[in-house]
Amino acid sequence: MAATPFRPANDLMVQYAMYHRDRRNIATHFLGIPMIVFAIGVLLARASVMGVSAAWIVWALATAWYLTRGNLVLGLATSLVNGVLIAAAHPLAAGSMASWLGWGLGIFVVGWILQFIGHYYEGRKPAFVDDLVGLLVGPMFVVGEWLFAAGWGRELLAEIERRAGPTHLRDLAAPLAR
C-alpha cells in the first residue's frame, strides 16, 4: 500500500506504534513531542498572514487533518492539546530576536534530543524517516497514549497491540530481532 497522509487514524496509530513499543521511548515522546510542537509554535508565531500568525495557520491546517482521520475524539483532543501549546508559545515570540530564536530553537533541539534518546532504547529509527506523515502522527500518538491511560479507547489500544505488539522494555544487551 502506498503511503498516503489520508489514512484512517487507526491505521496511522498502528503504523506509528510499530516504531514505538519500548516504554522508555514512549516516555521520552511524552516530553519531546510537546516540546517540538511548542517550539514550532514559538518559531512560527512571529510571522503572520493578514494578521493571523503562521503558527495558528499551521495549527488550523493540522486540525483539519486530525479531524478528518475518522476518530473524532482523538482528533479533537490532539487539536486541543496542540492549540494550548501554540497559545502558550506566542508570548515567547514577542521578545527580542535573540530571545525568540533562543527559546524556539533551544526547545526544538532539546525535544529532538529526547526523541533520539527514546529511539536508542527502541532500537529503531523514528517513524518519520520512512513516512513523513509521522511528524503529524506523533502528537496524535502521544495524546492517544494519554487517553488510553485515562481509560479511553480500549478498542483502539487493543487493535494497536494486536497489530504492533504490546509495549515492553527492550533488553539493550540483546541483539534486535526482526
Rank of each mutant, 00 (worst) to 15 (best):
L44S: 05
G123W: 07
L147P: 01
Y120F: 15
Y16S: 04
S99D: 11
L43M: 14
G104M: 00
S53V: 03
R163M: 11
G118V: 03
R124H: 10
A94G: 13
E145W: 01
W112M: 06
M18P: 04
R23A: 14
P91M: 07
G111F: 00
N25C: 15
R7Q: 14
L72N: 07
W59D: 01
Y19W: 10
A127C: 03
L156W: 08
L101W: 12
R124F: 06
L72F: 10
R46P: 05
V14N: 06
W152Y: 13
L67Y: 07
H119W: 06
S99G: 14
P126N: 13
L169F: 15
P8S: 15
P34C: 10
I57Q: 06
G144F: 10
R178M: 14
G123K: 08
M1W: 11
V133E: 11
G104A: 05
V42E: 02
R69T: 15
I40A: 11
P34L: 10
V37W: 02
G144Q: 07
G104C: 06
E145N: 04
I26K: 06
D171W: 09
G151T: 10
L44F: 13
E122H: 01
G70P: 12
L135Y: 01
A93L: 00
P139G: 07
Y16F: 13
H29I: 00
I117T: 11
I117M: 12
G41Q: 00
W146L: 15
G75F: 00
T28Y: 09
A39Y: 05
A127E: 02
L147Y: 05
G118A: 04
R24W: 12
R23Q: 12
L43Q: 02
G118I: 01
F116A: 04
A88D: 07
T68F: 09
A149P: 08
G41E: 01
A93T: 01
V109Q: 11
P34H: 09
L74F: 00
A39D: 05
A3F: 14
D131M: 07
L176E: 13
L31S: 06
A54W: 14
G102Y: 01
P175D: 12
D11P: 05
G106C: 04
R178V: 13
R46E: 04
M1C: 10
D131F: 14
E155C: 07
I107M: 02
E145A: 06
M50R: 08
A98T: 14
R46M: 07
G153K: 00
A9S: 10
A174L: 10
V137P: 00
L67F: 04
A98E: 14
F148K: 08
G144L: 06
E159S: 12
V42R: 02
M13E: 03
V81G: 08
V49K: 01
R46L: 04
L105T: 09
F6C: 06
A47R: 09
V52S: 11
A47S: 13
S53C: 03
G70L: 08
A2R: 12
V84K: 05
M18H: 12
V110P: 03
L157P: 02
W100Q: 06
G104H: 03
G102E: 00
L169G: 10
R163V: 11
A150E: 09
G70N: 11
A3L: 15
R163A: 15
S96T: 13
R21E: 09
A27Q: 04
R23H: 08
V58L: 15
V137R: 01
A94W: 10
S99L: 14
F38N: 02
A158C: 03
